[in-house]
Design a protein around this nucleic acid. Structure first.
Length: 889
RNA sequence: GGGCGUUUAGCUCAGCUGGGAGAGCGCUACCCUUACAAGGUAGAUGUCAGAGGUUCGAUCCCUCUAACGCCCACCA
């Protein structure tokens, strides 16, 4: 009657139907809402807000899955958990996208529309197309509380940004300055240092002559950018350079521009480098800017906002630098002032966003002074109040904060948080305000305007851990349980944004809370392809997580992510691996399919321990150990270890042995035994579900529906299994391991003899270990079920052995399979000899140690005993093989 | 130029504070066996990049070399 019920469940797991069933249930019935747990403690993870423009890619899938594994684990552990989702307005990316769209459809630029209309369109775009990720990420099963969802440009976020800005402004930490910044000529905006990527570019040194005034001398300068000479305001030499000492203080005539500029002395100039003469262009070079400041040089800006030469570029006005360069050189050549060109590759800054070559340019920008904040941030790490996992990443963190440059926070964009600084046209008053100002507080004039720039996106991101929890509005903070969830528990992110984001939060949040934003920072790997290359659009080597979920299921994808996430920096998410774990999910599915028909026989909970048989004790003990391992690993963010441990337990212990060992009982007649075994299987499966749930939530919740009792809630809010010392059965584990060893050995012989799977065989077991013989006798049914052994004869090792037989030896037992008819003795002997050789080698390794007095004297007792035991066991095996080989020969 | 990281089975990688060289996939042989062929059973595979050092003992610690990768940096 049992066998029919098997067909109630489909033979293969269908992830989709399960995913579609459980996610809406969890979400609609508010299982993601923070609830009081048995620990009375809270645990909070803030989701790094994905870009509003973004589509879910593998990087997100990794990030979100890991966060969810942690939050689900903590929920099961009895914490009041909050996983708080959000979305980022992504200033540049979004603006660029909308600009492109408008240009494509209407052939209009944002200037044609004007700021207000452009922003209206951007919001419209956001409502229609933005935030796809929020929908997509649900497919992953992430258990964030969507009621907490917040967008970086929501009114709540705006308030936080304005408040933060005004506080920093009033404290004098935000200042406006003419400073040399990285200018992106395509975006036509300043960008921060962190947004500049240095790429190798093939260029050249151009050697040019600058005539010295009132002299026949000409100074030879070397430059990679001759077209910037229009902005030169000095030529610098090293004060110690004897060649030029006498010229310091004189003037040169700048060719083409025919302008007189001084020859100055500055330590920065490297005597060895180039010609020893440096043309100084304070307006368009970071070093020259510093030199200019030291010598009070004039700053000449020779570029327009789009990177073309302005009126200082004379007849080349309107040309891009790269276009103007050869023309300038041509003219200098005509004047006899060009010496030579030497090919040279060098690093040139490029904008991370637009990929344009960055132009250093002097302009009026807003800066945040981070000198003190960075020290505070570093101290939290140094004092271990916030800890990096893996610890090594704190070096990267420190590298950035040790000598931080002040942060250029203004952007010449429209989409973003407009800088809350106002100017009065009448009295020139300038002030910051959290409100939309209408009149000047000083002169009451209404002739005022707001600074047109917006803030760097990372400014709002830097406040994210507190913005999301309602800061600075007290009512909102209360509603969002600020006090309970702040400081947040763990930040989960990739190492590529340690500078951009982690450092900024660590600097800004303490400024307003006097607290560190997180207890722990787990830095996970970056997804790479099979060949170890970072996945990127340009390589086209990305894997679409949605496609993976469609094909293999979210659980399989999550398990693949877990199995590759520990303290590593790369994660290879090859679809083949995901397929492998899909197969594992199917394996569990089928294990459940096997158990399912017997569930009605099962009681809940464990029977009295003294009633358990040895196999039951064994599996419970193994389960207990894997429980311990899972707890430790999850706590330390070693998802690779955790998933490996449960995989091995389920596959190699539970399915391969315990289920197999249970068949004869379940299909047998003894109702008491049957009920007990069903009970144990159910017990194990319930634990497996709970252990696995943080990694594979869908399939485990599905099983739970069958396993739970009527008064129990969903698995998502059950208890995570805990290690229990009383459930450790060392003897049973040892015995079972020996049984497994002997049965495997018998199967090995069967295959080597080509015995048909169904044919029964007779065997002899010889051992001097009475305990193990006794155990085997008790377990003869196992030999019959798992190795098709019909009769076993026992004996001591010294007993007479069958003459015509094939044998194997373990360290404790000799296994003989007597044969009728012809035996290929030669092959058997050679196999045994090989085995003997191998064992001898292993024995020697251990024995050599024991005969080395230095080892015996120095090694700790534990190690010594281990080696002794090992050697003794191997010796037994060698004797067995050796003695019996003699007989066969 | 500075810093960090990587180099372990054909592939992708794990090996924590030195003391048995491992996993998954792939591969080989045999099996549609009664939960599972997305499966079962049994198996093969490594000068742990190279050289030197410390140690009773090194994949693990130290030095050097090589290859690769990443980050930072103003070298005109």
């Amino acid at each position: 009657m049992e066998t029919q019920t098997v067909h109630e469940l489909p033979k293969n797991l269908d992830p989709k139907s399960i995913e579609e069933k459980w996610y809406p249930k969890w979400e609609n019935e508010k299982y993601f809402t923070p609830k009081e747990g048995k620990t009375g403690k809270s645990y909070c993870i803030i989701m790094p807000p994905p870009n509003v423009t973004g589509m879910l890619h593998t990087g997100h899938a990794l990030d979100l899955s890991i966060q969810d594994m942690i939050i689900r684990f903590k929920r099961l552990k009895g914490f009041k958990t909050l996983y708080l989702p959000g979305m980022d307005h992504a200033g540049i990316a979004t603006q660029a996208k909308v600009e492109e769209l408008i240009y494509k459809t209407e052939k209009k630029t944002k200037h044609d529309l004007g700021r207000e209309e452009f922003l209206r369109r951007t919001w419209k775009w956001k409502e229609e197309y933005g935030g796809v990720i929020a929908k997509q990420s649900r497919y992953l099963g992430i258990s964030c509380d969507w009621d907490y969802f917040i967008f970086t440009m929501d009114e709540e976020s705006n308030e936080a940004v304005r408040t933060a800005f005004c506080n920093l402004y009033n404290e004098g930490l935000i200042y406006q300055s003419d400073y040399i910044i990285n200018w992106d000529p395509i975006l036509q905006s300043a960008i921060s240092d962190a947004e500049v990527e240095h790429k190798e570019v093939k260029g050249a040194f151009y050697h040019i002559l600058y005539p010295v005034k009132d002299s026949n001398l000409k100074l030879e300068v070397a430059t990679t950018r001759p077209e910037t000479m229009f902005g030169d305001t000095a030529v610098a030499v090293n004060p110690k350079d004897k060649r030029f000492k006498h010229l310091i203080g004189k003037k040169v005539v700048l060719p083409l521009a025919n302008k007189e500029i001084p020859i100055i002395a500055d330590e920065h100039v490297d005597i060895e480098m180039g010609t020893g003469c440096l043309k100084v262009t304070p307006g368009h070079d970071f070093n020259d800017f510093e030199i200019g400041k030291r010598h009070n040089l004039e700053i000449v800006n020779i570029l327009n906002k789009d990177g073309t030469l302005n009126e200082h570029g004379l007849e080349w006005q309107g040309l891009k630098c790269t276009k103007a360069r050869p023309k300038v050189i041509e003219r200098l050549e005509q004047l006899g002032l060009f010496v030579k060109k030497i090919d040279h590759t060098h690093q040139v800054g490029h904008s991370q966003r637009s990929e344009a070559m960055v132009e250093p340019m002097v302009s009026k920008q807003w800066f945040l002074n981070v000198q003190e904040m960075s020290q505070v941030a570093m101290n939290y790490i140094k004092n271990d109040e916030t800890r990096f996992y893996p610890k090594g990443w704190e070096n990267t963190f420190f590298a950035w904060l040790r000598e931080p440059k002040n942060w250029c926070i203004s952007r010449q964009l429209w989409w973003g948080h407009q800088i809350p600084v106002f100017y009065c046209n009448k009295c020139n008053h300038r002030w910051a305000s959290q409100n939309k100002e209408k009149t000047c507080p000083k002169c009451k004039s209404d002739n005022i305007f707001q600074d047109p720039d917006v803030l760097d996106t990372w400014f709002s991101s830097g406040l994210w851990p507190i913005t999301t929890l309602g800061w600075p509005n007290l009512d909102r903070m209360k509603k969002r349980n600020f006090d309970e969830f702040f400081p947040t528990s763990t930040l989960v992110t990739g190492f590529d944004i340690i500078f951009f984001w982690v450092a900024r939060m660590m600097m800004m949040v303490p400024k307003f809370t006097n607290q560190h934003p997180f207890e722990k920072i787990y830095i996970h790997a970056i997804v790479t392809d099979k060949l170890g290359r970072k996945v990127s659009k340009s390589l086209g080597n990305g894997i679409d997580p949605i496609e993976m979920i469609d094909t293999y299921g979210a659980d399989a994808l999550r398990f693949a992510i877990a199995s590759g996430s520990g303290y590593n920096r790369n994660l290879n998410l090859d679809p083949e691996r995901i397929e492998g774990y899909r197969n594992f999910m199917n394996k569990i599915w089928n294990a459940f399919r096997f158990i399912h028909p017997f569930l009605h026989n099962a009681n809940s909970g464990l029977p009295a321990l003294n009633k358990l048989d040895s196999h039951e004790k064994w599996i419970i003990s193994e389960l207990n150990q894997v429980t311990q391992k899972m707890n430790e690993s999850m706590e330390e963010f070693r998802f690779d270890d955790a998933s490996g441990a449960i995989y091995q337990f389920v596959y190699d212990k539970f399915c391969s042995w315990f289920i197999e060992l249970s068949k004869s009982i379940l299909y047998g007649e003894d109702e008491t035994k049957k009920n007990q075994r069903a009970t144990i299987l159910k017990y194990c499966f319930r634990k497996i579900c709970a252990l696995l749930h943080p990694i594979t939530p869908f399939v485990t919740e599905e099983f739970w529906a069958y396993l739970k009792s009527d008064n129990e809630d969903l698995l998502i809010v059950q208890d995570y299994p805990e290690y229990d010392e009383s459930l450790l059965f060392v003897n049973e584990q040892e015995n079972m391991n020996k049984l497994i060893e002997v049965i495997t050995s018998i199967r090995n012989i069967r295959i080597s003899l080509n015995v048909k799977p169904k044919d029964m065989i007779k065997i002899n077991l010889f051992s001097d270990d009475d305990h193990i013989i006794h155990y085997f006798k008790e377990n003869e049914i196992c030999f019959a079920d798992l190795a098709k052994v019909e009769t076993i004869t026992y004996g001591k090792k010294a007993d007479k052995k069958p003459t015509k037989a094939i044998m194997n030896a373990t360290t404790h037992t000799e296994i003989f399979v007597p044969l009728e008819g012809v035996v290929d003795l030669a092959a058997h002997i050679s196999k045994l000899e090989k085995e003997l050789d191998k064992t001898k080698k292993e024995f020697d390794q251990n024995n050599n140690k024991l005969s080395n007095p230095n080892f015996v004297d120095h090694a700790p007792e534990e190690v010594l005993n281990k080696v002794k035991e090992k050697a003794a066991a191997l010796k037994e095996k060698i004797d067995s093989l050796f003695e019996n080989l003699k007989v066969f020969k």
